[in-house]
Design a protein around this nucleic acid. Sequence first.
DNA 1: TTAAATTAAATTGCGCACAATTTAATTATT
DNA 2: AATAATTAAATTGTGCGCAATTTAATTTAA
Lengths: 144, 144
Amino acid sequence: MENYHPLKLENQLCFPIYVIAKEIIGLYRPFLDEIDITYSQYLVMMVLWEKDGLTVNQVGEKLYLDSGTLTPLLKRLESKGFVIRKRKKEDERVVQVFLTDQGGNLQQKACEIPLKMQEELNLTNEDLLELKETVQKILNKIQK
Amino acid sequence: MENYHPLKLENQLCFPIYVIAKEIIGLYRPFLDEIDITYSQYLVMMVLWEKDGLTVNQVGEKLYLDSGTLTPLLKRLESKGFVIRKRKKEDERVVQVFLTDQGGNLQQKACEIPLKMQEELNLTNEDLLELKETVQKILNKIQK
DNA sequence: TTAAATTAAATTGCGCACAATTTAATTATT
DNA sequence: AATAATTAAATTGTGCGCAATTTAATTTAA
């Protein structure tokens, strides 16, 4: 019987998760290219489609991203015309992010993406649910 | 009963995977800082500890990375003294990557990391196995 | 055996992701 | 009211990650 080698790639937990995340994001790419946004930008847009006018901090809390990532990302979304960034009158430190009309309309174009991705992944609902539940369970543990 | 919203963040599959990968890599960081490598560099070192002298292509196949990522990464590992890159005599297009003594010795310093990470994650063996199996299952499906 | 096609790595360019620092505004203290 | 502490975003710097192109070596075909 072979020894257990904790430093072998095949025995790593994080590696397959890291790979699968990259691979799935890669599958998104052709669909997202069509609407001219990246995966990270898509996440930001989803957050704003759910609730418009959030601050940079609030977006970051939902996506686990900091201002070092979000500031330039939001500027790119702004230069594409999907959002505008406005400093709050009551507190000039705070920047709120608002959807433009174009940014709002993008949701209609994006709404086919989840279905297309489901076809792309071609997983059973059980597999999907199992994965989501397991990952969520771990995530909750890590972040407690 | 609420409608199902395919564009809501909470209904995304990839997002929690992407977050969990980032979070776990973040937990590795303090341990990897001690031996002065990044997570990606750690993956490359694990590959080389398993089999020394692989080509850039072979490392890339194992880690799902291309030369655009690996060439600069390997140069950084080389400048730290952990590997050396040598073009093959028989085929000058091919670059082989070899561990230096320092690179080989690093394995002894790294071997406590998996255990420390397991403590950090504080997951039951069942959780770990469940996650790994589910992720591997999906990964196999995606890459067929 | 020269020309064409292929291959491996390197390069270029862009967009994250994050640590650390800076800037500017606000709030809390003295 | 002036100072100190805190806060939000922006900035700086480093290192991926990947698409697209380039360079150089090798192989295949004409």
